[in-house]
Nucleic acid binder design. Structure first.
Lengths: 111, 111
DNA sequence: TCTTTATATAAGTAATTTATTATATAACGA
DNA sequence: TCGTTATATAATAAATTACTTATATAAAGA
């Protein structure tokens, strides 16, 4: 799944995660998104481009402003990837537990 | 949560995700991890360092080899972050649905 | 003790990222 | 049409990443 690369990379920046958190509460323009941060407007536009290329947000054009909103599908993919991963290793630990338990029983049974 | 940065960054590389997938099946040495990839041993050691600094794996020293294994806590944190995020925006969409439904009712009621 | 094996570290390099300031574009409103 | 507003793009620079090959370290075994 090659689209996981840009999505995880996009999430690795705290400014971008804060932008996403803001967008989780509703659409916002570049101005609104830039205000809380100590960075320039072009820098925010760049972060938005990264998020959009990662498939995490989308843009609507409304006159001279371009409000952004979340696009949830990609986060579902990340969620699924992590979920499968967790499942595999939890299964592994479960098997390990069973193994240790069996060894315990053999210990008690032997002699 | 500053430790999210290196963890998400670590996951953005497909080689590192493949390493984690391998480790989900059990401990492995640098040699074993390097074999399936077309990159040098030092490059694999570097990836492992990135994963370890992100808190995703840990190292055990056994003679001359250093088998790596998963350290699940950090993935739980990522899982939780994504989960909270999903919850917020699903709540938002839920509210939006309610709003649209109310608007629908008003439409039907009016006139 | 010497050699081999497993791994880490160093030095060098190319590509990518993230910011800045300055400027371009395009819609809106007087 | 002209000035203002919202946003994007360009040019540049600094920092970071991800490799490579060469070398260092440290334990194991003859």
């Amino acid at each position: 799944m090659p689209q996981l690369d840009p999505a995880f990379a996009a999430l690795s920046d705290p400014t971008r995660r804060a932008i996403l958190a803001r967008l989780a509460e509703g659409e916002a323009t570049v101005q609104e998104l830039a205000r809380p941060f100590a960075i320039s407007q072009p820098a925010v536009s760049r972060h938005l481009k990264v998020l959009e290329e990662a498939g995490l947000i989308e843009t609507r054009i409304e006159g001279t402003s371009r409000p952004r909103r979340l696009k949830p599908e990609r986060v579902e993919e990340l969620w699924d990837w992590l979920g499968r991963f967790r499942a595999i290793w939890e299964e592994r630990y479960r098997r390990l537990d069973v193994l240790l338990e069996e060894m315990g029983r053999e210990d008690s049974a032997e002699k």
